[in-house]
Design a protein around this nucleic acid. Structure first.
Length: 488
RNA sequence: GGCCCCAUCGUCUAGCCUGGCCUAGGACACCAGGUUUUCAUCCUGGCGACAGGGGUUCAAAUCCCCUUGGGGUCACCA
């Protein structure tokens, strides 16, 4: 039997990183088993769902490298793939359940239900439907419904026994039926609720494995019971442990960025995001930390997912971003960094394209020093500043001013340097400069600190001779001359 | 509170199912060195955990029970 997995987001917000991980696991297992990956949009919350969010979610999935075989836009044999387009199907199933007695009409209104809940809570009881309409005669219920009295449809949960959930991650989980509420399947306005849609769709779409967040575990007996009432075999479940904030609670906006979009905008490489997210609850093997989407597909099995929740560690995430960034070719890096450089106003896209080779050389000097694409602009801003107004970092200036005779040294050095600048042999000049310093019985910082301040205005950074190559002879000279005045 | 899930370094985790190979392995972070013109990268080393208590067993991180702790969920949201 071919496996069929799905990711079923609700377009009421951007793609959450927890949701992204769930999608990744479902996708990976579908690919690993040569099965089908279905995308289904759960948009039954009409008030909060928007097309913009739906598109943002799809875009996020594509960004991480996922594709899907069936879903909105591309269709498939079990469409439509948007729940709001499947209402006729839910109506049919509800009618069937009503007729078989597996479900019943409930005429209690929200006001009564709210009051009931409040009363139960105050009495220290677990809020649950009290069953007022559960035993209404079918004829009477039909008569009242026909008379226009508003009603919801509730699932009739057996009073006795227990429902067994077979979970690939948690093992066997038992729920006494007495603890499962007679939940609402269809609202007063005729729209279906989540648990009802999920079962209708998962069964109709022949879903074989449901991998989802652990917060759904307590919904599962309701769904299993419904599958049984429909005479169907439930799919295999795997409830994934939650991703936690540093407060140990379910990751929320309070504890950090939770939307995938945030990380993309911050300049995290997509592959790093994929890798890091998977590491929350799953590992490739005993020691591998860095792995690719391909590795994930080759090895992922829900059985290997750990049970405990995992705290999201932004520092490790940042480290991983750097690992991926450093592995990129200069061409890839240029493509990824360019938008950030443009957004910072340093250069236009056209300018970067015209000086592509130069830009790659710039990246070669900085790739070891950044972890995110977004860190580049601030680090290379010095290259775009006017030569007589390079912004001197206080620390750089202080370092430079430490050295007596800096002005004279810069002047002497410039004289020495000028004939060697055009053409510039970086390695040769670097070595020759060291000899220049040694001959004068100086320590390296005596020259390098004022020089670094002059050329970059920074206390640290790229090799100074690489920087000279990036600036070109005229600008190097102008900057040194400017420094001779500014550091006097 | 009821129900459910979980429990190894600060964090992510390996080991647990199929007890001995565990003096508990790796990674991030942190600390200390090394390399370097600086910063970063890189290399070396260090710090650091089986929640507690009972069992079972020749032997328990591994199996069982209890306690404690944490989390999830209890909607006409998904």
């Amino acid at each position: 039997m071919t496996t069929r997995l799905r990711y079923a987001p609700s377009p009421t917000g951007f793609l959450h990183i927890g949701g992204a991980r769930t999608a990744l696991f479902n996708w990976a297992y579908a690919r690993r088993t040569g099965g089908v990956f279905v995308l289904r949009i759960e948009d039954t919350d009409r008030a909060r769902s928007t097309d913009e969010y739906e598109e943002a979610i799809l875009e996020g999935m594509r960004w991480l490298g996922m594709d899907w075989d069936e879903g909105p836009g591309i269709g498939g044999p079990f469409g439509p793939y948007r729940q709001t387009e499947r209402f006729d199907r839910y109506e049919r199933v509800a009618a069937e359940l009503l007729a078989s007695g597996a479900a019943y009409r409930c005429f209690c209104d929200s006001a009564r239900l709210d009051a009931l809940r409040t009363r139960q809570r105050e009495a220290g009881e677990t809020p649950a439907y009290d069953g007022t309409c559960r035993d209404l005669a079918l004829e009477e219920a039909e008569r009242r419904a026909a008379a226009g009295e508003p009603f919801t449809v509730r699932f009739r949960v057996p009073k006795d026994g227990e429902t067994l959930v077979q979970d690939l991650v948690c093992g066997e989980v038992r729920f006494p039926n007495a603890d499962v509420d007679d939940w609402i399947m269809v609202r007063t306005d005729g729209t279906p609720t989540y648990n009802f849609c999920v079962v209708c769709d998962d069964s109709h779409m022949r879903i074989t494995h449901v991998l989802r967040g652990e917060e759904h575990l307590t919904n599962t007996p309701k769904q299993v019971l419904l599958f049984e009432a429909l005479g169907l075999e439930p799919p295999a479940f795997a409830h994934l442990p939650l991703m936690l904030g540093n407060d140990g609670k379910k990751l929320s906006k309070r504890t950090g960025d939770t939307s995938l979009q945030d990380y993309r905008d911050k300049g995290y490489p997509a592959a790093a995001v994929m890798n890091f997210l998977c590491l929350q609850g799953w590992g490739l093997d005993e020691t591998t930390t860095i792995f690719s989407l391909d590795d994930l597909v080759r090895h992922f099995d829900p059985k290997d997912v750990r049970k405990g929740g995992s705290v999201f560690d932004p520092k490790k995430f940042l480290w991983m971003a750097g690992e991926y960034l450093r592995r990129e070719s200069l061409e890839e890096l240029a493509t990824h960094c360019a938008p950030f450089v443009v957004a910072a106003g340093l250069a236009t896209e056209e300018e970067l394209a015209e000086r592509a080779e130069w830009f790659r050389a710039v990246l070669a000097t900085e790739r070891e020093r950044i972890q995110l694409y977004s860190e580049l602009p601030a680090r290379i801003a010095y290259l775009f500043q006017d030569d007589d107004a390079v912004v001197y970092d206080p620390k750089a200036e202080k370092n430079a001013r430490k050295h007596e005779g800096r002005i004279e040294l810069l002047e002497t050095y410039l004289e020495w340097l000028r004939p060697r600048l055009d053409p510039l042999d970086v390695d040769a000049v670097r070595e020759a400069t060291k000899a220049f310093v040694a001959e004068r019985e100086l320590r390296f910082p005596a020259l390098f600190q004022p020089l670094r301040c002059a050329l970059m205005g920074a206390a640290g950074g790229a090799d100074l001779f690489d920087v000279m190559a990036l600036l070109g002879p005229e600008r190097v000279e102008r900057r040194i001359r400017a420094a001779m005045e500014r550091l006097a």
